[in-house]
Nucleic acid binder design. Structure first.
Length: 154
DNA sequence: GCCAACGTTGGC
DNA sequence: GCCAACGTTGGC
């Protein structure tokens, strides 16, 4: 059963253009247990992800990717020079996991948070709910299709 | 840069 | 195991 996800990144940190250039990347640096659990326990190869830029102008969905590898230990947690270093992590117990994602689409015009808020069918989108800060959230198939249609609209 | 909302930490 | 203090996120 294919699932759908919305995954946030600050474009100054890693953007849709970086992914387009790299084609494939590790989604490293997630240090929130709920988000980790989604990646570790629920994501499957072939799932679709919406690439959301936060703290952006404008914030919103900028493109789409697919999950190509799951349950990858996040090596940045073991690297003392990394901003994502976690002294509690070890080879035996990595604590943090990531997935590998592969570029699919960059939207000509981003689907901004403004558009998301005003689109029928997205009233319950997790990332629009008050106080929602989670960097990885599930998206329903219908929500995914609404956003893709907005993004790929000519 | 502000600040509301949330997650995490650590003393007890 | 409670909860106050602190740190972070992210829209505005």
């Amino acid at each position: 059963m294919t699932k759908y996800w919305l995954m946030k990144s600050e474009p100054g940190c890693y953007s849709i253009d970086n992914l387009k250039d790299d084609n494939e990347t590790n989604w490293e640096g997630v240090r929130n247990f709920q988000a980790r659990n989604f990646m570790r326990d629920e994501m499957k190869v072939g799932d679709f992800g919406l690439f959301y830029h936060s703290n952006a102008k404008p914030s919103g969905v900028y493109g789409m990717f697919q999950i190509v590898k799951t349950k990858v230990p996040d090596f940045t947690a073991l690297d003392p020079t990394s901003q994502y270093y976690d002294p509690k992590a070890s080879q035996e117990n990595p604590i943090w996991f990531m997935v590998d994602v592969e570029f699919r689409e960059k939207f000509q015009i981003p689907v901004s948070i403004e558009i998301l808020k005003n689109s029928k069918g997205l009233e319950n989108l997790a990332t629009l709910q008050k106080g929602s800060r989670l960097s990885i959230t599930p998206v329903s198939k219908n929500e995914f299709e609404v956003i893709i249609n907005l993004g790929l609209k000519k």
